[in-house]
Structure formats: structure tokens, C-alpha cells
Computed example of a mutant assay.
Amino acid sequence: MTLTEELIALRRGLHGNPEIGLDLPRTQEAVLEALDPLDLEVGVGKGLSSVTAVLRGARPGPTVLLRGDMDALPITENTGLPFASTNGAMHACGHDLHVAGLVGAARLLAARRTELAGSVVFMFQPGEEGFAGGRTMIDEGVLDVTGGRPVAAYAVHVDCQTPSRSVVTRQGPIMAGVSVLRIRVSGTGGHAAHPHHAVDPVPVAAEIVLAVQAFVARRVPVADPAVVSITRISSDSAAGNVLATNVDLEANVRTLSRETLALVRLELLRLVTALGEAHGCGVTTDFVDSYPVTVNDPAETAHVLEFLDERHGDAVVRMPSPAMASEDFAYVLDQVPGTLVFLGVAPAEPSGPMHSEHAVFDDSLLGEHATLLADLARRRLARALLG
């Protein structure tokens, strides 16, 4: 069996048994089993089902980190694949491929251990989909496991709608930071037949929804964009003839700089509070910062792009602008210079989009995925020798 065939088998086993969040015992067990023959220094997380493996080269040198995320999404799969999940969760973002690709990179690098001057850390991370697993792994010491901070960190993220074999990245910000704004609009409740005897928070909440959706167009510089979307709305009215006392809203906020995040945080809270007060409603807010902006180190990414151009030629795509989705590899890149790269794995037949029940990924490229990760690490260690 070839390396690609072995990685496909691993990936499909993971795909049929997806797990959500920080506790991924079956996924962790599969990773540990796959790494067992490689003579690595392997550890597991305390507060999450992570795996950290260290490969030490034959000669001393710096450390490079490679990361792959492991968790799935709470989506019921509808792809019709023979290995599809049936447990109500789904690897709709390709993290099963990320696990298999990172295992493949570990195998390739272990086979060339005698050539390496330095160490490689393989970071198998749960909880990327909103649980900040990367931050927890950093708190538990993944960046210090070899005794010295990595000089570079890399991750490859697959995309099922990017043309097959395309390699996509950019210098600087590549993915947005994300935050959550929770809003409660409070009135008095009352009888639906007599709204003039009550303070009804529902129309006030509706006005806030429209104002929030329009906020970015008039308050945020177009050169440093933001996306603000109301994603949830609910009231505490339990009957059709009862006016609500409280309406709860939730907004998803995406930004590309600390400056715009600070502006949105200040001005948006001021706006919704003033609208509530204008109509006699109380407004309470909770602004929760989540993932920071994912920033590819410009100098490190220049070297990566030079390598990608040599290896992939016309298949290399330089993103003209960042994506507004988010990624918690940002926590690693906030402390270690490095690069996030996208690999196109669109199948022959059109796929549904990422994070959809119809998302399908071409796993025949797992060998290339593994080789790309391994070569990024190997070349970075070799470059360190040259100073």
C-alpha cells in the first residue's frame, strides 16, 4: 500500500466517525496509533484530546511546528459517500484530511531524520470550530515542548471549491478575526391587545437589527473592512398574545485589524444602547473577542511563496485580499512567524461549499498534502543552517 493509500484509509476512517469540540477520544486514539511506529516523543493534552509529537533530527538545530486540526462540525452529512458519517456530526471543513496529511508529513520526515538539523513539532489540535483549541494547546505548552520556541509554523488547509492542486496564500492578513456581540433589549411585557400600556422590545430590536446591518457601510473604512451580521434573535414571549419582556440578539463581527475591531466595539455598542434608550428600553451588551486575525508573517511567507513557485508553478495563487472567515491557527501565528496555505481539493463532480452537508473533498491529493507540509518544515530547517 502506498503512502497516499494509507492516508486515504486513515482519513476515511476519521470521516465516518467525526467528533466535535475539545473532547475527541476516538480521533486521538487513531492519531496515536498512526504515529506509534515513528519513534517520536508523543504527549497528549490535559484539558483537551490533543496530541503533540516531536521529531528530533540527527543534529541539533531550531524547531519548526506543523499543525493540523481534528474536530468536526454539528452537521448531518448528506453526501451519499460510502464512508459518510451517520452520527449527526460531519467533517465538512476538511479537518479529517488535515489529520491524515499531518500524519503523512510525520512519516515522510521520520524517514529522513538523519538529514534533519533541528526538531519538528506535530500539533494535532481539537476544537478549532469555535472552541479555541489552539489557544488551549499553547497554554499547555505546545510552543515550548522542545525547549525553544519554533522559528516558524505552518499549516495547510484544504478547500473543496478551490480547483484541484491549486496552492493559495498571501503575505500579511489572510483570514479575519471574529468576535460575538450579544444584545438584550428589555421592555415591560404586556397584553398584545394593549401595546400602549407596555414597552414592547420587539420593534426596538427590529430597528436595532436594521441599524446593525447598515452600520459597517457608514462607519467602517472600506480599506480596512468589517462584516457584521445578526445571526440569532429570540424573545421570551411564550404565547401569541403576550408581548415580550426581553429580546435577545447575537451579532457575528469579523475584522482584519485591531483598529477596526476597537472602532466596531466602541461605536456599535454605543449605537444599540442609544436606540434602546430612545424607545424606553433597557439594553445590555456583551462583546466577546474570539479568534484574532490570522496573519501570515511577510518575511516567512515570502520564502514560502518562492518555494511554492518553484514546486507548483502556475498552480500558485496569491490571494488579492484576505478571506473573512476565521481560523484559530491565528493564535500560533500571533506568537510564531509562519504561514497558512490553502490547498485546492475540489472533486471532479461539483461539491457543496465548506461547512455544508454536501461538502465533498478529493482525498487522492493527501500524498501531495503530506509532502507539502514535510517540505516546508525540511526547507525551513535547512535555511536555518545557512543563517
Rank of each mutant, 00 (worst) to 15 (best):
E310L: 10
V204T: 14
V216Y: 08
A325M: 09
D363W: 13
G130R: 03
D23F: 08
T284G: 01
L81P: 06
Q125A: 11
D39K: 00
D297A: 02
V293Q: 06
P163E: 14
V220T: 06
S186Q: 14
I174K: 04
R149Q: 11
T339G: 02
D71S: 10
N296I: 00
E250V: 12
P353L: 02
A370H: 05
T260I: 14
E5G: 08
T371A: 15
A198I: 07
R380K: 11
E41W: 00
E41N: 08
D286P: 01
P60I: 04
G127R: 07
L116H: 09
G134N: 07
R378Q: 12
A359P: 09
R170Q: 03
G68N: 05
F124P: 02
V264D: 13
A110H: 11
R218N: 04
L271R: 10
H194M: 12
L108H: 04
F122R: 03
D334A: 15
R112M: 01
L366N: 09
L97C: 13
A251F: 00
H194Q: 10
A152K: 10
A198E: 06
L343Y: 11
F342D: 03
F131S: 14
V293I: 05
V31Q: 08
R113D: 09
V151N: 02
S257V: 11
A374D: 07
D328Q: 08
V272Q: 11
L24K: 11
E41M: 04
S164K: 13
I8Y: 07
A239E: 10
L10R: 12
A274D: 15
D289G: 01
V212Y: 12
G127F: 01
G104A: 07
L181A: 08
L32C: 08
R265T: 00
V209G: 01
S85T: 08
Q213H: 15
P320H: 10
T245Y: 02
L102A: 04
T114F: 01
P62S: 11
T76I: 13
Y331W: 13
M1P: 12
V204Y: 06
N246R: 13
A205S: 13
E349G: 03
T27V: 06
V304E: 04
L386T: 14
R378H: 12
L256E: 00
V304P: 04
L7A: 11
L385Q: 14
P37C: 05
A262W: 06
S179D: 15
P25F: 07
T260K: 00
G47V: 02
P18Q: 07
S234E: 15
H312D: 12
G141I: 08
L210Y: 04
I183N: 11
S326I: 09
A323N: 08
L376K: 11
P350T: 14
A206I: 03
P201C: 02
P353H: 11
L97R: 00
E310W: 02
T273S: 15
L385N: 07
R182V: 01
D69K: 11
H98K: 00
C160N: 15
E128N: 08
V253L: 12
E29R: 05
S49H: 15
G187I: 03
A323E: 09
H95P: 08
F307I: 09
D289T: 13
G280V: 09
E140A: 06
D71P: 09
L305G: 06
M137I: 02
D314I: 01
D328K: 01
V283H: 09
P60K: 05
F215H: 08
S166Q: 13
L97F: 03
